[in-house]
Simulated scan of single mutants.
Amino acid sequence: MQKRVLISAVCLPLLGAAAAPQQASLHLTFEGLRSQKGSIRLCLWRDPAGYPDCTRGTGATKESVPAANPVLDITGLPPGDYAVSAIHDENDNKKLDKSFIGMPTEGVAFSNNAKIAFGPPKFEKVRFHVDGETTQTMRMRYFL
């Protein structure tokens, strides 16, 4: 009987440690910026609600980094699937500027460097898995 109690007392803390939530980190690097002016504004998405527009995405994590240093580390993330949409806000007006026909006049980028055709790529194309330490290098694209 004493052996069972002793084994339970030793193993119980180990079971609690195994149940502790694991945390992950995401290292983002942005390449292909046409200038070091302004900021890179991005949204980190867990689900497609509101994607890709950060102004409508209430569930997205919003971050900003200077374009002169286009690197960001996000820590303490629960492991899972994520997506990133980003703009190069060159004039720092906190929005994506567009031409009179709706074409972006500032840079845009998406995780997985998903192709941009007639509008932003679908959420499924930009989604990627974060587990442990994950890295994404995103290429900024300019249309005008």
Rank of each mutant, 00 (worst) to 15 (best):
P13V: 05
R56I: 03
R4K: 12
P52D: 08
A24C: 14
A24V: 12
D81C: 00
G119V: 14
I101A: 10
D97E: 15
S64K: 15
G59Q: 15
A17D: 07
N113A: 08
L96I: 06
W45Q: 03
A17H: 10
D47V: 01
G32L: 09
L26W: 04
P52G: 04
A109G: 15
R46Q: 13
I7C: 00
T61S: 09
T61L: 11
V71T: 10
P13W: 05
K98I: 11
R139P: 00
P21M: 07
T105S: 13
I40C: 01
D47T: 10
G59K: 14
A114N: 03
K37Q: 15
D97T: 12
S99R: 10
S64Q: 15
A49F: 00
D81L: 05
G119P: 07
H27S: 15
A17V: 09
T105N: 12
G119C: 13
G57M: 10
L14P: 02
F123C: 04
R56S: 10
Q22W: 02
G132L: 09
K3L: 12
A83K: 01
E124P: 03
E124Y: 08
R56N: 11
D53P: 00
K98T: 12
P48D: 15
L77Q: 07
R56A: 12
C43S: 13
T55S: 13
V65Y: 01
G57T: 07
L28D: 00
D47G: 06
P52L: 09
E90A: 04
N93T: 05
A60C: 14
T58V: 13
I7D: 02
K95P: 01
P70Q: 08
K95A: 05
A9D: 02
A18F: 13
A86E: 04
M103W: 07
M138W: 08
G102S: 06
E63A: 13
E63Q: 09
N93C: 08
G76T: 07
G59H: 13
L96D: 01
L44P: 00
D73H: 08
S39Q: 14
T137S: 11
F143M: 05
A67F: 03
L96M: 10
K3A: 08
E133G: 03
